[in-house]
């Protein structure tokens, strides 16, 4: 966490030094600061900040692609005259234990068009997901677990 703050601070310093607080310039500053911190703190910090940042980026990219695909599918369903629906509420067993991971996972599922996380059981073992088009429950559960839960766990609970 402190490395992340340091990284942000360095990025802001980069913006101040170059005199341009533009998004692209700040992004470049962030990448530059990341590279510098990587050179300086690699292997010496007990935090796994350097493996975490690429994983966050990877999750963001995966999420963006997923949103794009799901949006097209949902648009197809809504605009077709006979709506082709197979809605279902599916219980997905959870492995994520921390609150942060749970919130991140639920938000990601809800933000993907076509799926909606309804609730988590009080003992945090089962997540109930509503989906617009269910082909095969087993396949759906594994797609949630493989697609999102694994990536979230690698970021939040390494």
């Amino acid at each position: 966490m402190s490395l992340f703050l340091l990284n942000l601070l360095l990025a802001i310093a980069w913006g101040a030094l170059t005199g341009k607080f533009e998004p692209l310039n700040l992004l470049f500053g962030f990448l530059l600061a990341f590279a510098i911190l990587w050179v300086g703190f690699r292997g010496r910090s007990q935090e796994n900040y350097f493996t975490r940042v690429p994983r966050v980026v990877e999750l963001a990219l995966y999420f963006a692609v997923d949103i794009f695909k799901a949006n097209l599918r949902l648009a197809g369903i809504i605009l077709s005259p006979r709506m082709n629906l197979r809605p279902a509420v599916v219980a997905v067993p959870l492995e994520v234990r921390t609150e942060a991971g749970l919130i991140l996972l639920m938000n990601l599922i809800t933000l993907t068009p076509g799926t909606l996380s309804l609730d988590v059981s009080s003992d945090r073992r089962v997540l109930f997901v509503h989906t617009v088009y269910l082909e095969d429950p087993q396949q759906f559960i594994s797609s949630v677990k493989e697609g999102y839960e694994r990536r979230v766990m690698r970021i939040v609970e390494p």
Partner: peptide, 30 residues
């Protein structure tokens, strides 16, 4: 951050309030 939280709260409240699922729903684990 807020949109999924709001959707989650309404979804939970709606199910709890007894709003029925569509008759074509193929599975209701809840």
């Amino acid at each position: 951050i807020t949109a999924p939280v709001a959707a989650h709260m309404i979804g939970r409240a709606a199910y709890f309030d007894g709003v029925p699922l569509w008759k074509g729903t193929i599975q209701d684990d809840l």
